[in-house]
Nucleic acid binder design. Structure first.
Lengths: 184, 184
DNA sequence: CTATGTGAATTTATTCACAGCA
DNA sequence: TGCTGTGAATAAATTCACATAG
């Protein structure tokens, strides 16, 4: 909207766009202080900035990818991270055939060098390794000072409470569909 | 657990395993009738069956993949769908170089034949096409009688209310991490 | 004795309704 | 007049506590 020159938006329009209702929008924003203008609505640009601040997306985050297989390569090639302020600054693999090569301008490094992440101030990692090495990868990442992990391996991962782990299992997401579908 | 020979599990153990509390587990199950045994717990095998039934995962679901690019190929190669009873029964693409080839024993068909899905009784589809063709792909799928869509394109998709759409945007999932991470 | 299932109590979230500001 | 922000009212979810079944 900002790019399209729209100045402001009302809670009603925003609600319709999101499939919610206006009260919810206003109440939710009010919990963070309320940043609208009565009679006008929410200034689009200001709103976006506030939301980014709330979600801590107001700074560039460096992230590391571990596992440059099929899925890992897709992640490296994915252009969508930039709009949220992410920079895939490193990639790791155990396969010596891959180490040293570059994908999308990112050099693939030896996975035994994960400990260097702390020195490089990278606190976010994406795990895209086979299921049976996911936990040990996570352990290494935690040891390297990583504070947030996005896990693509289809398994639960244990980590200290202060490390946030989000697991994405595309099969599980697919499995959510039948429940909502009318009787087939 | 079933494979490991474990007969039953208590709400307490289940809660610990899931990071929840026992009351929640029991209350949730009770909403669906309650299928535990006082003094013993929940029979593992029976519980799994009940949950599959609730989630409508107690039958085999055929699914179609649209878009066999980088991400689509990963989806085709992904072994994890089977445990939830999914069968990727068809794959489509617009690229004539890909049409006719087989990946993971699935023949890639011409995307203009999507309408055949109805005849083949496939009601679930996975969209893995570029963002700018995602909506038209969804429209074609809806027209072909699809009732559930898993969308991997990073964009909102509009569909009739009776068609359930779940969108996965890996960048957005990554973007959830900073909020939970301690101040860096 | 042990662990479920469930009403009741409590907490949390959503919706309403309207005062007040641009 | 139009739309926000927010207390109050309503609805929903979670937690408790205990009767009851194996």
């Amino acid at each position: 909207m900002s790019e399209e020159g729209q100045q402001s938006i009302s809670s009603r329009d925003l609600a319709e766009l999101l499939g919610a209702n206006p009260w919810q929008i206003r109440k939710d924003f009010s919990y963070f202080g309320g940043f609208g203008t009565p009679g006008v609505g929410y200034k689009v640009e200001k709103l976006a900035k506030q939301i980014n601040k709330i979600l801590k997306l107001d700074v560039i985050h460096k992230a590391a990818l571990v596992g440059v297989g099929n899925l890992g390569s897709v992640v490296l090639a994915y252009p969508g991270f930039r709009i949220y302020g992410f920079d895939i600054a490193a990639a790791f693999d155990t396969d010596s055939k891959k180490i040293g090569r570059k994908i999308n301008n990112v050099m693939i490094e030896d996975a035994s060098n994960l400990w260097m992440l702390k020195r490089r101030k990278i606190y976010i990692a994406i795990i895209a390794v086979p299921r049976d090495t996911a936990q040990e990868t996570a352990d290494a990442l935690v040891k390297a000072g990583v504070k947030g992990i996005l896990n693509f391996s289809p398994c639960y991962i244990t980590a200290p409470r202060k490390v946030k782990v989000i697991t994405i299992d595309i099969a599980m997401d697919l499995a959510r569909l039948p429940y909502y579908m009318p009787a087939s």
